[in-house]
Design a binder for these strands. Sequence first.
RNA 1: UGGGGCGUGGCCAAGCGGUAAGGCACGGGUCUUUGGAAUCCGCAUGCGUAGGUUCGAAUCCUACCGCCCCAGCCA
Length: 568
Amino acid sequence: MTAKKETEGKTNFIYTMIREDLEKGLLEDRPVHTRFPPEPNGYLHIGHAKAILLNYGIARDFKGNFNLRFDDTNPIKEEQEFVDSIINDIRWLGADWEDRLFFSSDYFDVKYRFAQRLIEAGRAYVCDLNQEEIRAYRGTLTEPGTESPYRTRSAEENLDLFERMRSGEFESGSRVLRAKIDMASGNLNMRDPVIYRILHAVHHRTGGKWCIYPMYDFDHPFSDALEGITHSLCSIEYTDHRPLYDWVVDSAVELMPEEVRFRSRQTEFARLNMTYTVMSKRKLRRLVDEGHVEGWADPRMPTIAGLRRRGITPQAIADFQERVGVSRADSTVDLAMLEHCIRQELETTAPRLMAVLDPIKAVITNWPAGKTEMCEMENLPGNESAGTRQVPFGREIYIERDDFMEEPPKKFFRLAPGREVRLKGAYVICCEEVIKDEDGNITELRCTYDPQTRSGSDTSGKKIKGVIHWVSHEHAARITVNLYDNLFTMENPEGEAEVDFTRNINPQSLVVCEDVPAEPAVADAVPGSRFQFLRKAYFYLDPEAPDNGTPVFNRIVQLRDSWARMKK
RNA sequence: UGGGGCGUGGCCAAGCGGUAAGGCACGGGUCUUUGGAAUCCGCAUGCGUAGGUUCGAAUCCUACCGCCCCAGCCA
């Protein structure tokens, strides 16, 4: 029950709080119990992943339980399609709710009874004010509100009206049930909040059974109490709602004692923001609707579906979540942190392959035409059990255009006229001649190789600093490569109020390379697997790309490139 | 003179009265047939500001400054 080992070292304030709760016996022998409560009205993003993994991680570390509960109290916005995608995303992330998949709508009957008891206890009333009137009566941030003329209705009348609201007698929006709290409270949430509204709408689960639906502030705390949630975690903007959360739970404990499993408590933490992206559902929706991306699962999107399609792993996301930590302070995490987590995982798990993204042909003039030699290369450097593969080498090869410079600066270690470089796993070559077209563009390099420098049995004694990757022209497979980059050009795309964030979209966020030569082993790659294209980046063989016979690789993240940094 | 929350290095984030953890980023060294990886070193006399209490303050007190959230019959 102590779960000491799993939680020690985790120093965030929530773990600390739970440890204290346990020590003080506040949980009354109940297991730590958390939940993730998504509304099925859209796609999950990496900010949700933080919440999911936090909640799930707590349950796992403290040997408790984790529920998945859909907050489906607004039939107008919610759809089964989103339920399905959310379940799929959470499962992919690795959070396990076992058999505890719930829906707020599962509890509509009890909630109705709870509302009735609130009425009987004089703590709720039916209000006939329309929406504008309610707003006007609420007062402002600096002025207290005014009590509704319907506030003093008798319990009998309220019960009758509420029942008639339920039975469908009234139009949508014509009446609401309100909690009777304090119209003068400095906290607007306490000014007789609406807890039930009339909505003649078909619900994705309860169909036409109901035409009144509970509001979040009433529904959520009660659902937590019903499920025995011990720690109800939510984001910081709900801090103002906590007094109302407690009001509802306290009332439930008093009026529905047979139903309440635990007097749950709410704890807020800061939501995740990241550089070079946007996180609000509204803005993500605009990116999709305005066609800036190819949908919610576009690999440039911070959605779970997008990250998955990009090739990022759940492990990397979990590692990221742990490193970012949890606090109450507003923060924007550097994208570099996520990229680090991705690289760190893929470094030891992604087999190496060679592909030349921006090819230039090099002819080895002293290599016999038609001769092929096989070069043995490691699949995973430093991990012998991953084995080796044979890569064919021939007279004509491709090398990366930027691995050659006609007039290299002093620190350039790669190929240049009269200079030598090692072809990874093969021989050392020297550039003898540069061939150009009439416009002065380099079309081909003429090189010679040194037969004594064969990889693994080099007898030349040469010390060659530069090593570049290559692909044999004759044996090359052809692939398509999607070079994904940051969706925005600015760390904070929503930085300037006068400039619409879509103006900061990176026009180079996707560069497609067709006909990219790659070593033949690429043909054996299994869709959905990840590779490092040597010296370039990690790639994901897109299993969802339309199949036209050419494999499509998505760039997950580039390798660190100290040469590129040096150039700046 | 509405209520609430938050301010620790470029970015996250520990710390809870005993003299600033860790990670990312950054800079430098070693090593390297990926300018990758690995490895070593460096990186806040300072914790929003100003006072105060104390032998001792990021931690306690006071005042001030800055940023964020709240006036949906959304969640």
